[in-house]
Design a binder for these strands. Structure first.
Length: 537
RNA sequence: GCCCCCGUAGCUCAGCUGGAUAGAGCAACGGACUUCUAAUCCGUAGGUCGCAGGUUCGACUCCUGCCGGGGGCGCCA
């Protein structure tokens, strides 16, 4: 690609000047300000000191050298500011980008193989099967699903997994709450009092034992959660049952192996994990003095199971679990796993606002906003896009009134509208018989309008962007890029007519190529977020 | 007290491994529809990037210390 040409021109010039640089030091970037050219290098600023030059002088020498033998595709090279070297290219390189996008199509565009097929397990949501999913779960759900998409796009083999805590204290309280509600008794202390408990208990068969209630409630809740997730297009490859590890003996084996590795000990009638040996603040209880496991113990066994199936584990946890990271990594190391292959992605809390007031999230009380309600209110696409629009590192304010009533404020419509507009251009071209019978010899050099070039620059950036989003597990970067691409599309749509009497046939066919390329861009980006690209709005 | 996240325009947020004059949407103001969807486009206005030091040719970005907001520090899950 063109960046290689520029890099080698730079390193050649530096060599001629007797300045030695490593290829890795040559760093090219696309300046934010278009007046600074298409590509820019700071190499003179970086190397000047060691070479004993003034940065601007060095840059001038480099430019002189490159200009004496200007590579094709580069229109001019200049020195600017404190010593930047700016390259202006002929639009031809962007036309190459267009051809590449068309050739790749929606199935290939933006995809690479840096993951080399490495297996990654993405565990997310993992809500207790004691109630419906709420607005807070949704952030982790959209995020986890999207990073699995992105990791797949860069060549990993991603598996989506949901860990079901179908045993333990909370399950017991849930079952007791259902039974109490069913028989009209008082909900037990610390039990579940949400309105859904009443609705669910009415669905429940009569005269169930506590154990049967637990089974029934668990599968009912799981079914409800599964259904809600499917409403926003999230389908898990595996639902891993905590209880199954009791039956299989996995938990006992894990306890034994921890003991064998001197990672656990008895104290005060409880069994402890020696986690402080592995960087945790303190040791943690694995088996309580009453003989029950803590939450940690089955989870350790579970992670171990995941490691037997995948090389890299990603857990998406809420901010309230961050204190749990150190002990889990400690346990993995104690069991001989590489804690570096366990990545914990923390999503900050979602603050729900309705009517200007904060809505508290608590499953134990009645006032939860269910994910199902949100999806029914604003639709799956707006739900997913809204949750993915900002970094999970920041706490999110989700304004339900805004999302429901002022749809125009919602960027998802802006992006989807861009796609619908491109489709309508194609539909018109189709009705005139000039599409999709596209002439492959369209003269792309006709694409010189700034709107057209802007579109191509956006498309050029996509592949690197997907890799960055994968590296940082940051789907919001895709969402931000989509808004930029949509802005370019709307600008192009406005200023560059594609099909019409006063547009030459040559220009029409060149622009039709661009329309399809931009469309491929929108579809590819939206796909990674799990948002649809409708033909009309 | 310790740990994690955040602090950027009136509001909601971007800002890539440090780069040139800090960006976008909404809200405000002013323009653009005989045309492929005006659910759009163009322009104006709006900033001490929480504060103070440090590193650097260069800091919103990295380091340290404060201040402010949120979350977590159980033999709960």
């Amino acid at each position: 690609m063109i960046t290689k040409t520029i890099s080698s021109a730079l390193s050649g010039a530096l060599e001629d000047l007797g300045v030695t640089v490593l290829p890795a030091q040559i760093n090219l970037e696309q300046p934010a300000n278009k007046e600074h050219g298409d590509w820019s290098s700071n190499i003179a600023l970086v190397t000047a000191k060691n070479a004993g030059w003034n940065p601007r002088e060095l840059a001038a020498k480099i430019v002189e050298t490159i200009n004496s033998n200007l590579p094709s595709g580069i229109e001019n090279v200049t020195v600017a500011g404190p010593g930047f070297i700016n390259f202006a290219l002929s639009p031809q390189w962007l036309h190459q980008v267009l051809l590449a996008v068309l050739e790749q199509g929606t199935k290939e565009f933006g995809r690479t193989n840096i993951g080399k097929g490495k297996k990654v397990n993405v565990e997310f949501v993992s809500a207790n099967p004691t109630g419906p999913l709420h607005a807070g779960h949704a952030r982790g759900a959209c995020y986890g699903d999207s990073i699995a998409n992105i990791l797949t796009a860069v060549g990993f083999e991603a598996q989506r997994e949901f860990y079901v805590n179908d045993r333990g204290l909370q399950m017991g309280l849930f079952a007791e709450s259902l039974l109490a509600r069913k028989s009209g008794n008082q909900i037990p202390e610390n039990g579940y009092a949400g309105a859904y408990i009443e609705e669910w208990s009415e669905e429940m068969p009569d005269d169930l034992s506590l154990e049967e209630t637990l089974d029934w409630g668990c599968s009912y809740a799981q079914g409800d959660q599964r259904e809600t997730l499917e409403m926003i297009g999230i389908v898990f490859d595996a639902w891993f049952s905590e209880r199954s590890m009791v039956d299989s003996g996995a938990i006992e084996r894990t306890m034994n192996d921890l003991m064998k590795n001197d990672a656990s000990y008895l104290k005060d009638g409880a069994t402890w994990l020696n986690s402080s040996e592995y960087g945790d603040d303190k040791d943690r209880v694995l088996v309580k003095s009453d003989g029950e496991f803590t939450y940690l113990t089955p989870d350790v066994a579970y992670h171990r199971d995941k490691f037997s199936r995948s090389e890299w584990l990603i857990n998406v946890w809420g901010a309230d679990h961050h204190g749990y990271i150190a002990r889990m990594k400690a346990a993995m190391e104690a069991l001989g796993h590489d804690a570096g292959q366990l990545t914990i992605a923390i999503t900050q809390l979602v603050k729900l606002v309705r009517g200007g007031e904060e809505v508290r999230l608590s499953k134990r009380h009645g006032d939860i906003i269910e994910l199902r309600e949100i999806v029914e209110e604003i639709g799956p696409d707006a739900t997913r896009f809204s949750y993915l629009l900002q970094s999970v590192d920041t706490k999110q304010t989700f304004d339900l009134d805004l999302a429901a009533s002022q749809v125009m404020d919602n960027p998802v419509f802006y992006v989807q509208m861009a796609h619908a507009r491109l489709r309508s251009i194609q539909a018109k071209a189709e009705s005139l018989g000039v599409w999709p019978a596209m002439p492959l010899d369209a003269d792309l050099s006709l694409l010189t309008h700034e709107r057209e070039l802007e579109l191509l620059r956006d498309l050029y950036n996509f592949t690197d962007l997907v890799q960055l989003a994968a590296r940082e597990l940051a789907p919001h970067k895709i969402a931000v890029w989509l808004r930029e691409l949509a802005t370019s599309v709307h600008g192009f749509y406005h200023d560059c007519y594609v099909v019409g009497d006063d547009i030459s046939q040559q220009l029409t066919s060149a622009r039709l190529q661009l329309v399809e390329a931009a469309r491929i861009g929108l579809v590819s980006g939206l796909d990674l977020l799990g948002v649809s690209a409708p033909d009309s709005m």
